[in-house]
């Protein structure tokens, strides 16, 4: 009896898949004006990601001529691969996705290619070997962000032989790797002494604990904190206060992202410099999707313009900040 049920369910599932395949390929060929697009977001781990999701959902809205299928992979690659596969079976005309990690996408990207569905990357990158399956990427230049942040540090502490600690992002993520590389470039030969760097996993909680450790270890020797995202810097604030020091004065704090909370801390004088990592990529992505579907030639890479804020600029920008 049970076996019969399972078999029936399997048959039904296969049938529905086949049906979905049929109907979707029909829609794809008809070339109707609305563009069916699937967006596989990697998760909702930070304020930055929230802003990014909202931007894409707004840009790929029906009022702009899109029909959006949205999926949140909760920071798991297998979920994201499953989402992309289902987009392929649904026969969308374009797939947009923000890869949670760099590697392991070859199979599913090949499938998309065979189904003649263009894939556009948003935000993070995939491994260079898989670039052949990608129509285009719209993202931020992480290396440049690291460079800009550390350039400010080098300029402001020129000739002062200051000590810096670094809260790195999730070990192995392209954002953390590239920001470290970018910062290292400008740090070379400067007066800044990097005391220590540790993984803070891009979260407030770990930013706080790791900073506590740094403070116990080096105490008032620390002059500069470079946190590779706002959240870790915000977590570190409490630790610095508990150590009897004033964030922004005793320890100057430089972060990357430019979220609302980060800029608020900057305008309060708790942070000293914030490099933006622009999450509002929606409009640019929407344009690329339109061009690709229309068969126009597009560039392989579009980099968003990232601004940088000091305390005065933050006060100005804050009231109109979208994220």
């Amino acid at each position: 009896m049970k076996k019969g049920l399972v078999a029936a369910a399997v048959v039904a599932a296969i049938a529905s898949l086949a049906l979905a395949g049929c109907s979707s390929s029909g829609a794809g060929a008809s070339g109707s004006k609305t563009i069916k697009v699937g967006f596989a977001q990697e998760g909702a781990e930070s304020g930055w990601r929230t802003a990014n999701t909202k931007s894409l959902q707004a840009a790929l809205d029906s009022s702009n001529g899109f029909k959006l299928n949205f999926s949140d992979a909760q920071q798991k690659q297998e979920n994201q691969i499953a989402a992309i596969r289902s987009f392929i079976t649904q026969g969308v005309q374009a797939i947009v996705f923000a890869p949670v990690v760099e590697t392991g996408w070859t199979d599913v990207l090949k499938q998309a290619k065979q189904a003649k569905i263009p894939v556009i990357l948003e935000d993070r990158d995939v491994d260079a070997a898989d670039h052949q399956y990608i129509a285009s990427r719209v993202g931020d230049d992480f290396e440049k962000e690291g460079e800009t942040a550390c350039k400010w540090i080098v300029d402001n502490f020129a000739g002062k032989s200051a000590n810096m600690v670094v809260l790195q992002g999730t070990a192995g993520s392209s954002a953390a790797n590239d920001r470290t590389t970018g910062c290292g470039k400008v740090m070379k030969g400067s007066d800044i002494n990097v005391l220590d760097q540790q993984d803070g996993n891009f979260t407030r909680a770990q930013g706080k604990t790791v900073m506590e450790g740094f403070l116990q270890k080096y105490g008032s020797k620390i002059n500069i904190l470079f946190a590779q995202n706002d959240d870790m810097g915000l977590g570190a604030l409490d630790a610095i206060k508990a150590a009897g020091m004033t964030p922004g004065k005793d320890i100057q704090i430089i972060t990357i992202d430019g979220t609302h909370d980060g800029l608020t801390a900057l305008s309060n004088g708790q942070f000293n410099y914030v490099v933006e990592c622009n999450p509002l990529l929606g409009d640019q992505v929407a344009q690329v999707v339109k061009d690709v579907v229309a068969g126009k030639k597009v560039d392989k890479l579009y980099l968003a313009k990232d601004e940088a804020f000091d305390q005065a600029a933050a006060k100005q920008a804050l009231p109109t900040r979208k994220y």
Binding site: G43, Q75, T203, R204, A205, K208
Partner: peptide, 8 residues
Amino acid sequence: IMAADANN
């Protein structure tokens, strides 16, 4: 951290 982080 004065935040509810469902993922982490």
